[in-house]
């Protein structure tokens, strides 16, 4: 839930430069950002490995059956490569990740194979939910900002605050009950095609909505706050004094300056959406990482969750990097 909205990077202090110099600067800046996020991702991956390693219990004991002898256990440790030195396994895990090798599950399957069809489905669901969240929160935030402090503003802000703390599975159950079981408008369960993707588009609606509702609450507040901050800047005040109509002031003078904060807020929602997707997918039987993780939970299969965490960490890194670049592009030329 509570994600930070601050991004540690600061806008470059661009003086009037020739176009060539400016693009060189932008590239250098993008390189620095890339390096920063890549090193943070590497730290996360090391942290994931340490968590699995240091906590008591490993993949071999987790899947052991009752009455299994110590020799059997040792044999499976050897099969899973758990008998090798920690440092060697750490280097294997870290060097394997960039090549798409996410490790071996406790059952001996490649984690990459388990996720190859599931992860794209989750990404599709998450992307739809992120798009819906962006559209809805921008629309609601701008609508509320047209009359600051008015009844509509207070209603939107109040509703946004109310829904942002709701767990996704509670929203999902409510949606299923109303939109599926009572009215019969939308399917409550996702059926899959032969290739493992959802059979029709309307099966995506309810899972995406369940993810969107809490995140829209969260992002509407960010949009509203960013617009209010930007509305206090001198260039907006002068636009208002020039007698421009409110909606024009909003779209041409307030919104552009508020975009970096909005992009940063939406980027931090990516993590919440991926986490929420795990929960929502189990409710709708959606063929994504949620169902892979559900069986991992039953098996206490830690390598699988480590692989999923690494993969989603990479996705979130890319999105946060993009949000940083948006900030640079928007603020770089002006400030």
């Amino acid at each position: 839930m509570a994600g930070p909205l601050t991004s540690p990077t600061t806008a470059p202090t661009a003086s009037p430069l020739s176009p060539g110099k400016r693009s060189a600067r932008v590239f250098a800046r993008a390189g620095v950002l890339l390096l920063k996020w890549a090193s943070l991702l590497a730290l996360l991956l090391a942290l994931v490995f340490l968590t699995v390693e240091l906590l008591p219990g490993d993949a071999a004991t987790a899947t052991s059956e009752r009455g299994e002898s110590a020799a059997d256990l040792a044999a499976r440790r050897e099969l899973l490569g758990l008998d090798r030195p920690v440092l060697e396994r750490f280097l294997d895990w870290m060097t394997g990740l960039p090549t798409g090798d996410l490790g071996t599950s406790a059952r001996g399957e490649q984690v990459t194979d388990l996720l190859s069809s599931a992860f794209p489905n989750t990404l599709l669901l998450g992307a739809i939910a992120l798009l819906l969240t962006a559209v809805l929160s921008l629309a609601l935030g701008c609508w509320a900002a047209l009359r600051p402090g008015g009844r509509l503003d207070r209603t939107v802000s109040g509703a946004a605050t109310a829904v942002l703390a709701l767990p996704e599975f509670v929203v999902a159950v409510a949606l299923v009950l109303v939109l599926s079981l009572w009215t019969g408008w939308l399917p409550a369960v996702t059926l899959t095609d032969a290739d493992g993707s959802p059979a029709s588009w309307d099966m995506l609606v309810l899972p995406a909505l369940a993810l969107t509702v809490p995140q829209t609450g969260w992002n509407t507040r960010i949009v509203r706050a960013a617009l209010a901050d930007e509305a206090r800047t001198p260039h907006v005040e002068s636009a208002v004094l020039d007698g421009l109509p409110p909606h024009r002031v909003l779209t041409h003078h307030v919104l552009p300056g508020a975009l970096p904060a909005v992009a940063a807020g939406l980027a931090t929602s990516t993590g919440m959406l991926l986490g929420g997707a795990v929960v929502v997918e189990t409710i709708f039987n959606y063929p994504g990482i949620g169902s892979v993780l559900a069986s991992a939970v039953a098996d206490r299969d830690s390598p699988v969750i480590a692989g999923v965490t690494a993969l989603s960490g990479a996705v979130i890194t890319v999105v946060l990097l993009l949000a940083d670049l948006v900030r640079d592009v928007v603020t770089g030329g002006r400030r």
């Binding site: 839930m1 943070l40 991702l41 996360l44 919440m272 929960v279």
Partner: peptide, 8 residues
């Protein structure tokens, strides 16, 4: 930790 969804 921004890169690690809390649920995961």
């Amino acid at each position: 930790l921004m890169l690690l969804p809390a649920v995961l």
